[in-house]
């Protein structure tokens, strides 16, 4: 296959394993997006790729560049920190929006939303 960096054998094997595993997990998560039937089940699917999938590939990238430059390169930590904090926020907001829309349309197979406070909702009603 086309060019790839020349790492020592142990590092190449480790990086290969992690990259393929991470991509496989991300693929499984996206497959869930197609296969699961209800929206609320599908919301779970992307978190596969965002946790284990991203973790494996980021660790592989750290090992790859650290060996390549022969000094610790850990700036991938930033992405992992960022992804861990942002994925829950997007998924929670999306689930709440979906619940809200289902209620607005009068669907009955979803749990009731808590009563909104009359003005400004206050800090309590929202999640974090």
């Amino acid at each position: 296959m086309s060019q790839a960096p020349d790492l020592p054998l142990w590092a190449a094997l480790l990086v290969s394993l992690l990259v393929v595993a991470g991509a496989g997990v991300a693929f499984l998560g996206s497959l869930g997006l197609v296969r699961l039937r209800s929206f609320y089940s599908r919301v779970h699917a992307p978190s596969l790729g965002a946790t284990l999938g991203a973790g494996c590939i980021l660790i592989a990238s750290m090992i790859c560049f650290s060996v390549l430059r022969s000094r610790p390169m850990v700036h991938e930590l930033l992405i992992s920190l960022f992804v861990t904090i942002t994925t829950p926020v997007t998924l929670m907001l999306l689930a709440r929006a979906a619940l809200y829309r289902d209620h607005a349309e009068g669907r009955t197979n979803v749990p009731p939303l808590p009563k909104r406070r009359p003005e400004g909702a206050g800090p309590g009603e929202g999640t974090t």
């Binding site: 998560g29 978190s47 946790t51 861990t84 829950p88 689930a95 619940l99 808590p114 309590g124 999640t127």
Partner: peptide, 25 residues
């Protein structure tokens, strides 16, 4: 909320602070 949503399989949907109930999927 970050822990529960980051572990696939559980999703934090809503928390009502007046009663302390958490709605999960």
């Amino acid at each position: 909320s970050i822990i529960l949503t980051c572990t696939p399989g559980t999703l934090w949907v809503n928390y009502t602070s007046s009663t302390g109930t958490l709605l999960l999927h």
